[in-house]
Amino acid sequence: MKKNEVPQDGNNLVKGESNWMNYAVDQNGEYVQEISIGWEPENIALEQAWEVVNEKINEAQKKVLAGQLSPIAFYMEVNIMDIPLLANYMDKYQWQVRRHLQPDIFKQLSEETLDKYAYVFKISRTELMNVPTNKNTK
């Protein structure tokens, strides 16, 4: 890659926040450092990854609002976690977390357990109990 070919494809997703170092050759064939603000394929791949995350969040949100799953299912997706990872953060077994996804079991959880979930998700207990009804995208 030549220095003047270092891609400068910004996009809405990275909002001008990306400034990454690249190595490229200058006109004398010497390797130099050059900043890149982004590259099209990378932007596409990133968008795609977030699309998957957002789909999962919306799916979980619908199910929580329909009373099929507990709020934990929603916040788990917001935090890009799955059951094994969440169980790991909660110091619990996966089957326990899976049970907590059931709305009826969730209602019976101790304050201590709820606080721990809230801590892991970096939200307040009130937020944990109330899943937003508007469309949620990260």
Binding site: M21, P41, E42, A45, L46, V52
Partner: peptide
């Protein structure tokens, strides 16, 4: 396409220098 997208990210995202 998801598999492909992941390949791109491993190859191009921050920390790979392209």
């Amino acid at each position: 396409t998801l598999y492909l997208g992941n390949l791109i990210r491993m190859q191009e995202e921050i920390g790979t220098g392209g």
